[in-house]
Simulated assay, not measured.
Amino acid sequence: MNKVIDINADMGEGFGRYTIADDERLLDIVTSANVACGFHAGDPRIMGLTVEKALKNHVGIGAHPGFPDLIGFGRRDMSLTPLEIKTDVLYQIGALSAFVKASGGHLQHVSPHGRLGNLAVKNREYAQAIVEAVLSFDSSLIIITEPGELAVEAEKRGLKTAVQLFADRAYNDDRTLVSRKEPGAVIHNQETVLQRCLKMVLEGTVETVSGSEIEVDGNTLCVHGDTAGSVDLAKEIKATLIEAGVEVRKLEEWL
């Protein structure tokens, strides 16, 4: 039986007249899209257009809720209460869902963005608040996250969870990502990225910044659209995986 993997990317992360990634070209490659919901990036026009393009390309659509932090792109620490987390996440899922419904589609997943997602991996209260928001909206939604508290809480409450692997990010020995504040957090060498992706998907291992090899087991591979050459890299990653016998399909088709 062939190995199956989903490839996802963050989408719609511009604002007003500003854009970050080439979403249109990425949507020809990825199988799932995490669409910004207006708090860390995105606005109603960008959300609507991104959803329409994703549906046209038969890409699974997910809400990408983040901290209410447009200036910091949702990557700064914020100390919020569980109620604030729950209601902020619910608000953002609801906003994106309106555009998806209006375009004749449906939501596939929820993928917390940036610092909110990082904290939910380690902070049980944040994880529980996100799970509560998802459950109160639609218990059929898949949660995309890293191994940790959010995955544990989601599975405990009966939600499907897709563990995320990162194509171009460096790993620490404890399976967390190297902070973007540290040198080498993002891997730019294409051949290195391709080999790491093959090893993660086919062998379930990855080399850390210390040179150790750790086990990783994931359902979806994240490619970052806001790094230089991301479209070409995503295309090569997909082609390399397919050539190795891996099936690339959106999550709701097989998870």
Rank of each mutant, 00 (worst) to 15 (best):
residue 167 A to L: 06
residue 38 G to D: 02
residue 227 T to N: 12
residue 185 A to S: 10
residue 52 E to K: 05
residue 121 V to G: 09
residue 60 G to W: 00
residue 251 L to T: 07
residue 134 V to G: 03
residue 108 Q to C: 14
residue 252 E to N: 15
residue 71 I to Q: 15
residue 245 G to W: 06
residue 179 S to A: 11
residue 69 D to L: 07
residue 178 V to G: 01
residue 98 A to D: 03
residue 218 G to K: 02
residue 29 I to H: 04
residue 198 L to T: 00
residue 155 E to G: 05
residue 208 T to H: 07
residue 67 F to N: 00
residue 161 T to W: 11
residue 193 V to P: 01
residue 199 K to W: 03
residue 52 E to R: 08
residue 108 Q to A: 11
residue 7 I to W: 00
residue 108 Q to H: 15
residue 6 D to W: 01
residue 184 G to A: 15
residue 149 E to G: 02
residue 63 A to F: 05
residue 142 I to T: 06
residue 173 D to W: 09
residue 145 T to C: 12
residue 29 I to W: 01
residue 210 S to V: 05
residue 25 R to K: 09
residue 64 H to P: 00
residue 26 L to D: 03
residue 195 Q to D: 14
residue 11 M to T: 00
residue 65 P to F: 04
residue 191 E to Q: 10
residue 197 C to Y: 00
residue 174 D to F: 12
residue 30 V to C: 10
residue 101 K to F: 11
residue 161 T to K: 05
residue 119 L to N: 04
residue 205 T to K: 07
residue 183 P to M: 11
residue 127 A to F: 04
residue 224 H to A: 02
residue 138 D to M: 13
residue 193 V to M: 09
residue 127 A to L: 09
residue 48 G to F: 06
residue 66 G to V: 02
residue 159 L to K: 06
residue 181 K to N: 14
residue 236 E to G: 05
residue 23 D to K: 01
residue 61 I to S: 01
residue 105 G to H: 13
residue 163 V to K: 07
residue 135 L to P: 06
residue 112 P to C: 14
residue 50 T to I: 12
residue 61 I to V: 11
residue 48 G to N: 14
residue 189 N to I: 13
residue 9 A to G: 04
residue 4 V to R: 05
residue 79 S to Y: 14
residue 80 L to C: 07
residue 177 L to G: 08
residue 33 A to D: 04
residue 191 E to S: 12
residue 11 M to C: 00
residue 163 V to N: 05
residue 165 L to S: 05
residue 252 E to Y: 11
residue 26 L to Y: 00
residue 31 T to A: 02
residue 170 A to P: 07
residue 246 V to A: 07
residue 202 L to R: 01
residue 25 R to D: 13
residue 174 D to K: 10
residue 150 L to S: 10
residue 227 T to G: 09
residue 69 D to R: 10
residue 158 G to R: 14
residue 167 A to N: 04
residue 51 V to A: 03
residue 205 T to M: 13
residue 86 K to D: 07
residue 102 A to S: 15
residue 154 A to V: 10
residue 127 A to T: 02
residue 128 Q to P: 02
residue 162 A to M: 08
residue 145 T to R: 04
residue 43 D to H: 11
residue 130 I to A: 08
residue 38 G to N: 01
residue 118 N to H: 13
residue 45 R to W: 11
residue 198 L to I: 05
residue 117 G to A: 12
residue 119 L to Q: 06
residue 240 T to Y: 02
residue 91 Y to W: 09
residue 108 Q to R: 15
residue 17 R to H: 13
residue 71 I to E: 15
residue 39 F to P: 03
residue 224 H to V: 01
residue 157 R to Y: 06
residue 183 P to F: 07
residue 158 G to T: 15
residue 181 K to F: 14
residue 21 A to L: 02
residue 147 P to V: 08
residue 200 M to P: 03
residue 55 L to G: 02
residue 35 V to L: 01
residue 1 M to A: 13
residue 235 K to P: 06
residue 63 A to C: 08
residue 107 L to I: 08
residue 243 E to T: 15
residue 51 V to E: 05
residue 18 Y to L: 09
residue 29 I to Q: 02
residue 60 G to S: 02
residue 234 A to I: 04
residue 94 G to P: 05
residue 212 S to I: 10
